[in-house]
Design a protein around this nucleic acid. Structure first.
Length: 414
RNA sequence: CGGGCCGGAGUAUGCCGGUAGUACAUCUGCUUUGGGAGCAGACAGACCGAGUUCAAUUCUCGGCGGCCCGACCA
């Protein structure tokens, strides 16, 4: 894409209403725009990165047998009343509204109820199980305090997968597969090293759940890490002796860390299938409730976490897997001169070779282009200057390390 | 939800009970082009309401909005 066609502008200064590093940099670089507290728009560059993250998650969900759907945001109170979660005293993050005729609606904050009710029409026999269904969908949560930029927002896209299994054993088997898929996702987006499977409270669903917690000072959780096992314990269950008998973790020697919760996996059991009548006939013809689990990741929060972890004083730094473009081609030529003709030709060649390239073809100063390129954080920068015309070799700069190498056109296209 | 701080050109800020200043951005012209260029000119601003006062952007109160700390995060 030609940068002259990109409608977003970068900013030299951070907005005064953001303190979080992720929001400051993403706003400065033109990735996001704040509508209100806890409500952000994704602009062209931001959407590209968000979609890269989503694509990785989708691949991993498909690999473990997930079937993708899209449920509605508008929620029918009837099914939520059946599960007992319509009351604001039970779920305090509800956004609720009314139809013109006065009847009440909710904006979905999660989708156990809707999907479970839906699946009653599609699951009736043990032959219909297991099923794994997921979506990327906007969730609405009326957080009492939105904070930390895009890390804790009131409207956000969430990948939520729900598993429907015959019994606890087959559920457990899938649960571990999902855990492995999650680990693969975090590794692929570049935060695997710092992310720990963490024992946490299961809330009202089960004794424990697992969270994926990424070590980062900007986080709002506290965990205790067993480095040798690559496991951790959330502070909320740290004092519970049962955690240690269940997990085999030795409480002595755990290392405390501030973390960001980047994902969670829950065993739901039959809580929702009981409430909403989702059962199947087993081989003997006996009606049995379906055993469920739920598995969430917020792609936006993941994006914010990557920023918090990798950005430097010059701006964003993206891993190749989630960068909005693979290459930032920076021309130092004036419109129409020899340098920009060489840059134009290289741009066309890179496009033909299938490389995702952002081409800075604008008629602005070199300093500005470099500074903005650093801010935007594309992993590789190819600079086309006078020397490129003279020698035929292009300067390639690695954003993360600042390493510079010279490459010929043939090498760049290889 | 409790507490604190804040609200001014598109963005970021200085000063101030009496004429709203600066930088960047934008527009025009000329000069520039390997690290957010220079000069000259132009456009552009006080969240809302009430009170105090001769006079309020400035002080007081309320509302709305924003950030931070804490609680909460099913």
């Amino acid at each position: 894409m030609r940068q002259s066609k990109l409608f977003t502008r970068t900013r030299r200064e951070a907005p005064s209403d953001e303190v979080a590093k992720n929001a400051q940099l993403l706003v400065r670089a033109g990735y996001i725009h704040k509508e209100m507290a806890g409500v952000y728009d994704f602009l062209p560059l931001g959407l590209r990165t968000l979609n890269k993250i989503i694509a990785i998650i989708r691949e991993e969900m498909n690999a473990i047998g997930g079937e993708e759907i899209l449920l509605t945001t508008l929620q029918n109170p009837e099914i939520w009343k059946k599960s007992g979660r319509w009351d604001d005293a039970v779920v305090d993050v509800w956004f609720k509204t009314h139809l013109k005729n006065g009847s009440e609606l909710g904006l979905g904050n999660t989708h156990e109820e809707a999907l479970t009710a839906l699946m009653t029409e599609h699951i009736s026999s043990y032959k219909d199980l297991p099923r794994y269904v997921y979506q990327f969908q906007n969730k609405f949560r009326n957080e009492t305090r939105a904070k930390s930029g895009i890390m804790r927002t009131r409207e956000f896209i969430m990948k939520d997968l729900y598993s429907f299994s015959k019994d606890a054993d087959s559920h457990k088997e899938f649960y571990e597969k999902a855990a492995t898929a999650y680990e693969s996702i975090f590794k692929r987006v570049g935060i695997g090293e710092k992310t720990y499977r963490t024992f946490a409270s299961g809330g009202s669903f089960s004794k424990y759940s697992h969270e994926y917690q990424t070590v980062c000072d900007a986080g709002e959780d506290t965990i205790y890490i067993d480095e040798s096992k690559r496991l951790a314990v959330n502070k909320e269950v740290y004092e519970d002796p049962e955690v240690y008998t269940t997990s085999g973790i030795d409480k002595a020697g755990l290392k405390e860390a501030k973390t960001i919760e980047v994902g969670n996996i829950f065993t739901l059991g039959t809580r929702f299938s009981d409430a909403l009548g989702l059962s199947y006939k087993d081989a003997e013809g006996k009606a049995t409730p379906v055993f469920m689990g739920s598995y969430g990741i917020g792609p936006g929060r993941l994006m914010g976490t990557i920023v918090e972890l990798m950005a430097d004083e010059k701006g964003l730094v993206w891993p190749e897997t989630v960068a909005p473009f693979a290459v930032h081609l920076v021309s130092l030529g004036k419109l129409g001169d020899e340098v920009s003709q060489v840059a134009d030709a290289l741009y066309e060649d890179l496009m033909k070779a299938g490389v995702e390239v952002l081409y800075d073809d604008r008629d602005t100063s070199a300093g500005q282009k470099f500074a903005e390129s650093d801010l935007i954080g594309i992993p590789k920068r190819i600079v086309v200057g006078k020397d490129a015309v003279a020698t035929g070799s292009f300067e390639v700069v690695e954003r993360a390390t600042g390493t510079v190498v010279k490459k010929t056109r043939a090498e760049l296209l290889a």
